[in-house]
Amino acid sequence: MRALLRRLWFYLIAAYAAVTLNFFIPRMVPGSALQNFLAKMNTASLTPAQLQALQAQYGGGHQGLAAQYVTYLGNLFQGDLGVSTSLSAPVSTVLANDLPWTIGLVGSATVIAFLVGTLIGVLAGWRRSGLLDALLPAATFFQAVPYFILASLLMLSFGFYGGAFPTGGAYDTGRYATVTPGWNWPFIANVIDHGALPAATVALASVAGWILGMRNMMITTMDEDYVLVAAAKGLPRHKVVAVAARNALLPSISNFALSISLVVTGSIVTEIVFNYAGVGREIFNAAQAADYPVMQGILLVVTFTVLGANLLADLVYVALDPRARKVA
């Protein structure tokens, strides 16, 4: 329990750091962020109220830095992330529509990558020098190539030329769309159809990490005495492997914390390629329109999402490993 409280303390500090960083980024860039913003802005008209809000957010008004910071924190506590300059809607409303798509995409891709990667890793570690080991460099290929290139590759081969999957969007829209958004089967099937390639991109890119981590942990674990004892007792082969695999799994999960932010940013880039209805498309559009409030809001929300995923991984770890519960 104490270990858990310590972790919670860390997440509190991390969240505060992210919030503060978000406040200082526009104030640290060379030149005045507000001036850059006004120079790049597409919309010609700006109401006095909007200008005031922007000044509060980016400095340049007559408030001091400390006062700006306090105002910023106060607004944040009320869930106020500012108003989008290009969509004229509160940023929080915009993000509430986008976030479920991104979380769904990252979540399903991660679950797939975890299951497939761990399984292959166990097999590769068990049958070392087998056929699977020869495939390892191929798996790292997907890891070494930037997400947007991998995504474009899948989009072109399976979507554009192959025609097996749609090339963009999260579901059919437009005049000829036959589905209506909601909890009905045709719509869900449509969403899965559209999500297959983006999810495959994220899963392919992250699966190598799981395979390699699991394989190397398996190799180390197979040398442990208790595995030898299990084998000496005459347990069938697959049970011996299961004993080793269960113990090899723990470090694999704690390694996940190292990669989660890379996976999330990667899936955001993937969304841009597929024009998927998530946070990625939103930040791309916001960047095009120089919509600073939306960009910053997304930055903050995504950081919180990553922290949340880390917390989840921590909880799973504590649940699986009794030692983690004891160590203070």
Binding site: A18, L299, V302
Partner: peptide, 10 residues
């Protein structure tokens, strides 16, 4: 903390 920050977005 830096590990959790989404670098590319920043």
């Amino acid at each position: 903390i830096f590990l959790a920050l989404p670098g590319l977005l920043i």
